[in-house]
């Protein structure tokens, strides 16, 4: 069971040769492949991270622009509404004023015509009352 002989050194040499051979055909190429893959993945990962950061930056910028535009549009709308209200109020006031003045004018005209009518009526009243008197009392009495 324990007989040592030349098997021992030969096996050692053979093992070292195997290690050297495997180093060439197994460890080196596959280690290289694994490392290259790691590099590739790391680079891709870095690139992706960069692009993601850029995309996030852009998103932020666009969102800011969007918020700015929204603010501007709201201000614009508020302005326009205020303007419209002002104009409307102005127009209403003008119209009311115009209506007022027209009404006053009409009232004045009516008053004037009333006056005129009254005047002419009064003149006619004189003539009519004279005629009535003449008819009742006779022309001699009246003209006397």
């Amino acid at each position: 069971m324990f007989d040592f002989d030349a098997t021992l050194p030969l096996m050692a040499v053979q093992f070292l040769l195997l290690a050297a051979l495997l180093n060439v055909v197994f460890y080196k190429p596959l280690t290289k492949a694994i490392d290259e893959r790691d590099d590739y993945i790391r680079n891709n990962d870095l690139g992706a991270r960069d692009r993601l950061a850029k995309a996030e930056l852009l998103t932020k910028q666009y969102e800011e622009q969007l918020a700015e535009a929204r603010r501007q549009s709201q201000a614009l709308i508020a302005n326009a509404q205020a303007d419209a209200q002002k104009i409307g109020a102005q127009k209403i006031a003008e119209a009311q004023q115009e209506a007022q003045s027209k009404r006053e004018q009409a009232a004045k005209e009516i008053e004037q015509q009333k006056q005129e009518a009254m005047q002419s009526l009064e003149q006619q009243v004189d003539a009519l009352s004279r005629q009535i008197l003449e008819k009742i009392l006779g022309a001699q009495l009246v003209n006397r």
């Binding site: 002989d5 195997l18 197994f26």
Partner: peptide
């Protein structure tokens, strides 16, 4: 004097390892 049967099986083992390595590294892909 050497033990022949040890070397015979060890050559088999070595052959297996080398063939597997060669097969694995013959066409390395990402």
């Amino acid at each position: 004097k050497i033990h022949g049967q040890v070397f015979l099986t060890s050559w088999f083992v070595i052959g297996l390892l080398v063939i597997a390595s060669l097969a694995a590294t013959r066409n390395i892909r990402r």
